[in-house]
């Protein structure tokens, strides 16, 4: 493999990893703070991707879809939490899994009724539909660079919000001692709703951003969900930093694995997870208990 191909694969791996981070960060926050296993989290990326497709088809542009995916995701997540998820905080994981699995079926059925079961490609916005020449022999998709940049900005913002703002302090405190947060006069239920809304918005944005790269198709969220769970487990449940580095690691291992050793590509991610868990059973960034 020549240097240009390798560099392309590394950039692809980073870009895939950063998209994974958008999905995994919400998953890890919801799991870490509310203790809810949300199987429908991957399905939310599907909803975001189809939103991008529908808006792209209607307006001929992806630009409106990205902010709309975030806004719609926040509202949808808040409603979903208040109406359904909230009732399951005190229940067994099995009940939560049944509920969120039912949501996958509902989302997919809704998608089928509204848009049908066909594959659809989503055009890259013309402004970004070109290749950036990086050296005389190597160029890279402008849209992929754009996705990379958006994800880096969002990751930085998310980090700042969680570690530098009062709201972020409430999120961290709620993950640790929700009762104490409540006794100090902060309604934990609102923090929980905000976290679920945030996670949904990020998942739908990830779906919308990736739509031009992967096309949209039924059950496209299933694979995302499984890999995101691998990221959460590797990074340490509830840890944003863990989700970030775990996602980059998985993105690179998966992408480079497929390029370098195609025969083992399907298992590379899981071998990595097993190795990390043998070394650190609670994940790379788990807080010391």
């Amino acid at each position: 493999m020549d240097a240009a191909t390798l560099l392309t694969q590394v950039l692809n791996g980073l870009q895939y990893g950063l998209l994974l981070f958008l999905v995994a960060s919400g998953l890890t926050l919801v799991f870490g703070i509310m203790g809810v296993i949300n199987l429908a989290h991957g399905s939310l990326t599907m909803v975001g991707a189809y939103l991008a497709y529908a808006i792209g088809a209607a307006t001929g542009s992806l630009w409106l879809a990205l902010p709309l995916a975030v806004a719609a995701g926040a509202v949808f997540g808040a409603v979903l939490e208040r109406v359904l998820i909230r009732r399951f905080y005190d229940r067994a994981h099995l009940d939560q899994v049944l509920l969120t699995f039912a949501l996958i079926l509902l989302f997919e059925e809704g998608r089928s009724l509204l848009v049908g079961n066909d594959f659809h490609s989503v055009p890259i916005p013309p402004v970004l539909d070109w290749s950036v020449p990086i050296s005389s022999i190597f160029s890279y998709s402008a849209y992929r660079l754009f996705v990379l940049a958006v994800c880096v900005v969002i990751a930085a913002l998310l980090f700042l919000v969680i570690h530098r703002t009062r709201f972020g302090g409430m999120i961290r405190a709620s993950a640790e001692k929700p009762e104490m947060v409540e006794a100090l006069g902060i309604p934990v239920s609102r923090v929980q709703m905000a976290v679920f809304a945030l996670g949904t918005a990020l998942a739908m944005l990830a779906g919308a951003l990736s739509a031009p790269l992967t096309s949209v198709y039924p059950n496209m969220g299933d694979g995302v969900l499984i890999v995101s769970f691998v990221v959460v487990v590797i990074g340490g449940i509830g840890s944003i930093a863990g989700a970030f580095w775990g996602a980059l690691l998985i993105g690179l291992v998966d992408t480079l694995g497929k390029a370098l050793v195609p025969d083992l590509a399907g298992i590379a991610v899981y071998v990595l997870m097993a190795a990390v868990l043998l070394w650190r059973p609670t994940g790379l960034f788990a807080r010391a208990a």
């Binding site: 640790e176 309604p187 934990v188 239920s189």
Partner: peptide, 28 residues
């Protein structure tokens, strides 16, 4: 009432075991 509503009426709590948030700084 939820504990947060009672707290907002001017009741604060120093629990047994102190209830410090380990992942927050002293200032936070």
């Amino acid at each position: 009432f939820a504990a947060s509503r009672i707290a907002r009426l001017g009741v604060s709590y120093v629990p047994e075991g102190r209830g410090i948030f380990a992942s927050l700084s002293v200032r936070e």
